[in-house]
C-alpha cells in the first residue's frame, strides 16, 4: 500500500498529465499554454527584453496564435532553440509550433516530417564585409574565410554558391548570430553571411557600422515560415489560418485599433465579416469559436503592424517592407482568402 502511494506521488511529481493521443489543438487547450519554439535570440525576431518578456516579429505571431487558440496572447511558453535543435524540439513534442526564422525547403518539409504553414518573411542570403578589403562583389570572394551558422540553409547555400562560381572558401563555423557578430568583429573571418534581415541588424550592432558594407548579391531564396509536426492536419489548419488571417487583415484594413469596432457588428465588406465572425462561422471549421481572428489581430495587430513594431524602418533594424509588402502594394505577400 505504502509503496503504491509513494509511486503515485513520485509519478505525480515527475509527470504532468498523461494525456491520451489527442490532437495538438486539444493538448494545447487542455494545457492552457502554447509551447512556441523560437530562437535563443535573433534581433528583431525573438529576444527577451529587460524584464524577461520575449518580444519580436516571430514572437508576436506566436502570441497571436495563442490568442486565437487560448483566448490569451500571454499564455505562451517560449522554448529557445539553436539552429540545430529547433526541429528536434518540435518533433519530440517539446514545442507545438516553430516560429524561428526557418527557411521553407523541400527536404525539411518531406524528410524532417514538418508541415510548413506558409511564409511570414521573404528573406535572402547576403554577405557582410569590411570595406577596407576593397571587395565590391560576392564573385571576388575566392579564398575568403566565412563565418557561417551551422545547421542552417545558409550553410548549404554558401557551399552551392562557391561551387557554382568555382571559388573556394574557408568556413568558420558558429552556433548563433551573436557568436557570428563576435567572431566577425574580432576579425576571425573576412565575411559574415546570413539572411539579409540578420545582416542589417548585425551591421548596426558593430562598433563602426560605416566601415562595413553588405554586398549587393543576394544568393538565395529564404522564405521564412512557421512549421508544425507532420501528421496533425487539424492543428496545421488552425495555425495556418491564424497566419493567413494576420496577412489578410492588412489588405482588408483591419488593425489592432479598429478590430473591435469591426467585430462588433457586420460591416459592408463580406470578407471582413467572414474573417471576424460577424457573418457565418469560419472558426468552427478549425475547431475554434467565431472570434478567433479578432483575438489574434487584437493582440499584436495585423501583419503590417507586427512588421513595423519589430523590424520596420522606425526600429534599430530599419528593414524596408521590400518584397514583403502586401501584393496590393507591389510585394509578394499574399494569403489565401478566408471563405
Amino acid at each position: 500500500m505504502r509503496v503504491t502511494q509513494i509511486a503515485a506521488v513520485a509519478a505525480a511529481l515527475t509527470m504532468t498529465t498523461m494525456t491520451a493521443q489527442a490532437g495538438t489543438l486539444q493538448d494545447v487547450q487542455a494545457r492552457g499554454e502554447l509551447n512556441c519554439v523560437v530562437s535563443t535570440g535573433v534581433a528583431g525576431f525573438a529576444a527577451p527584453d529587460d524584464n524577461g518578456q520575449w518580444s519580436g516579429f516571430d514572437v508576436d505571431f506566436c502570441r497571436a496564435t495563442a490568442a486565437a487558440v487560448l483566448g490569451d496572447g500571454s499564455k505562451v511558453k517560449f522554448v529557445p532553440s539553436t539552429g540545430k535543435t529547433r526541429f528536434t524540439l518540435l518533433n519530440s513534442g517539446e514545442g507545438d509550433i516553430l516560429y524561428r526564422n526557418t527557411t521553407v525547403t523541400m527536404s525539411r518539409d518531406a524528410d524532417l516530417k514538418l508541415t510548413f504553414l506558409g511564409v511570414n518573411y521573404y528573406d535572402g542570403q547576403g554577405f557582410l564585409i569590411r570595406k577596407e578589403l576593397g571587395i565590391n562583389s560576392a564573385k571576388d570572394l575566392d579564398g575568403a574565410s566565412v563565418c557561417i551558422q551551422t545547421g542552417t540553409t545558409t550553410e548549404l547555400n554558401l557551399a552551392d554558391y562557391f561551387r557554382v562560381n568555382g571559388m573556394s572558401y574557408e568556413p568558420v563555423p558558429i552556433e548563433t548570430n551573436e557568436e557570428g557578430i563576435t567572431q566577425y568583429s574580432a576579425n576571425r573571418c573576412d565575411v559574415y553571411t546570413t539572411d539579409a534581415s540578420g545582416l542589417a541588424s548585425t551591421r548596426a550592432a558593430l562598433d563602426d557600422p560605416s566601415a562595413h558594407m553588405v554586398l549587393p548579391e543576394i544568393i538565395s531564396k529564404e522564405p521564412l515560415g512557421p512549421a508544425v509536426r507532420q501528421g496533425d492536419d487539424e492543428w496545421a489548419d488552425v495555425t495556418r489560418w491564424v497566419l493567413n488571417a494576420l496577412i489578410n487583415a492588412e489588405t482588408l484594413g483591419v488593425t489592432k485599433a479598429n478590430v473591435a469596432e469591426h467585430a462588433a457588428a457586420a460591416g459592408d465588406n463580406p470578407s471582413v465579416n467572414r474573417m471576424l465572425g460577424t457573418e457565418g462561422d469560419m472558426g468552427a471549421m478549425i475547431g475554434l469559436d467565431k472570434q478567433w481572428a479578432v483575438r489574434a489581430i487584437a493582440h499584436a495587430g495585423n501583419y503590417a503592424e507586427i512588421f513595423e513594431a519589430n523590424v520596420g524602418p522606425d526600429t534599430p533594424l530599419g528593414l524596408e517592407r521590400g518584397i514583403n509588402a502586401s501584393w496590393v502594394d507591389g510585394g509578394i505577400l499574399y494569403a489565401a482568402p478566408i471563405r
Binding site: 535570440g41 557568436e179 557578430i181 526600429t315 533594424l317
Partner: peptide, 17 residues
C-alpha cells in the same frame, strides 16, 4: 551565459558582447 547571449539579440543593446 544563455541569458547574456539572448540579451545581445535585443536591438537596444546588441553588440555589447
Amino acid at each position: 551565459l544563455g541569458i547574456g547571449r539572448a540579451s545581445l539579440a535585443d536591438t537596444k543593446w546588441t553588440g555589447l558582447t
